[in-house]
Amino acid sequence: MSLPEKTNKGTPYTPDDLFVPLENSSYNVDHIAKPSVSYWKDAWIRLRQNKLSMAGLIVLILLILMAVFGPIISPYSYDHQVLTNGNQAPSSEHWFGTDNLGRDMFTRTWNGARISLFVGFMAAFIDFIIGVAYGGFSGYKGGRVDNFMMRIIEILYGLPYLLMVILLMVVMGPGLFTIIVALTVTGWVGMARIVRGQVLQLKNSEHVLASRTFGASAGRVIRKNLLPNTMGPIIVQMTLTVPTAIFAEAFLSFLGLGVQAPIASWGVMANDGLSAILSGHWWRLFFPAFFISLTMFAFNVLGDGLQDALDPKLRK
């Protein structure tokens, strides 16, 4: 019995040379029809679909543009007083009215926007960097390291902030940089605690274990596995930092830190305008308060969109 005989009996003979091996490179059974997109690009695509978030983004951009160009397009300067022209209601001449020293509120509002927006974003950004690094590391390492790092946070929480700030101002003198330092010196601990809590919760989940099994470094696991899954609370915390920073700046001005009069940030203007509610000069409180709220609102809806966009579990 031989093979050729057998073949002759029934099945047609197929010569070996008809079998062409597939080239390795075109071996794509799992071919994905969509082009491969990175995590961030995908997030952006999904963010763009969220109309409300885009509106928030546009408002933020407009606010920034107004902060840059508002004072320039106005015919008034932010510090020029016309004492006889104090507390004028909004009119075609002064769009936002004038303050108690007769200064144009429109110009002052956008001048203040520069400080408030800068301070708010910087504080949120720095809190984010320090908080995520610290909290992520602490939660990931766990054990003794975590314990120690959390005690440091407790100390920072416990120290009287006001004392630290007064010392800061005496040592460093007033200025924007001092404000940023004062805002972030303890500002990041909230973020750190949240990130740590999330990391503690997630670090034993399957995808993290899988990643670690493949030998991913701590940094990679935190960046690729843990952080994206923690984005929700982080973004919420960041959106909270912005208004907190804007108002904290007003409080710091009170201690003599930060930009000096006659420049006024939104927070300081809102503070000054408080007693103006009683006298009916509502515009002195309304405009700064309104723009703080608008910034907040824009930041929040953008944050919501970002949160959805960045959440890997919602990735389609």
Partner: peptide
Amino acid sequence: ETLQQMYKESLGVDVELAN
């Protein structure tokens, strides 16, 4: 703030404010 403006206008001196 008012003093600051008065110095600017009548003396031409820019005074810094600090609180």
